[in-house]
Design a protein around this nucleic acid. Structure first.
Lengths: 128, 128
DNA sequence: CTTGACCTTCCAGCGACTGGAAGCCTTATC
DNA sequence: GATAAGGCTTCCAGTCGCTGGAAGGTCAAG
């Protein structure tokens, strides 16, 4: 299977698939022409990576997860620890964004949004 | 005022302040030695930028906000539009993260986290 | 006079792609 | 068999907002 078909199957852009090969996440075979030739196992790995990325795991986390997935003698505790640590980071990000949202939505509500220059948003930014 | 003092005043790293000058957000004067010499107005601008960045505005948004701040004939509607559009983006990000959080926390809860290899997290990543 | 802290510029790198150029390969049509 | 379109290849540069580090100039204290 060529890279275009692999992209269609996995929903990942071809560029991203090449990038994943470049950084050693996958190792598709090569045909005589030099074209990459994706086996089912490659497609499976790419789909795995796509789902892990959708859950927000970093590339390095994905590498680790793939390693754990392929290691039959893994401990689920290793997977869980990684996932939980990522979950904590997500929750931290949510909290930070919610704090921005709270401040910003108050400011937006307080702003008349008309043709006059007076603006509580700018006032807040200027004077804290 | 030297860059170190400006950094201490504003809470921004010196590196960041230099970067802001490089991209044209500020234009501090220079002493004979070549050292930057920050006036109160520069400090004020830096503090403004720091607060805007803390609210998650992009650098380009910050540039626009600073321009509006300095434009006495601005309309508050321009500020409000920018802020609201940013607010929407924040809310979208929160929603995306919350969706990750929901999926991930279910998976983490379902995972035994012991020495056995069986793991719902990996199973989900592998098979959707 | 020397030391050490501060300042300067410039270059490189982060994460995870993404766009584009230049050129080879394959397939379809004539 | 020629040609054109489309897909594939590699490589380089750019994104965003800094951050680290190297090499060297400046300044204040002892």
């Amino acid at each position: 299977m060529n890279i275009g078909a692999a992209a269609a199957r996995t929903g990942l852009p071809s560029k991203t698939i090449r990038y994943y090969e470049e950084i050693g996440l996958i190792r598709p075979a090569r045909g005589k022409s030099g074209y990459r030739d994706f086996a089912d196992a490659d497609i499976h790995k790419l789909a795995f990576l796509g789902r892990a990325r959708m859950l927000g795991f970093s590339i390095e986390d994905c590498r680790t997860l793939l390693g754990l997935y392929e290691d039959e003698s893994r401990s689920s505790s290793d997977v869980k620890r990684l996932a939980r640590s990522h979950l904590v980071q997500i929750e931290d990000k949510i909290a930070a964004l919610q704090s921005m949202q709270a401040t910003l939505s108050h400011l937006v509500e307080a702003c008349a949004g008309d043709e006059r220059p007076d603006c509580p948003i700018l006032r807040d930014l200027a004077d804290g």
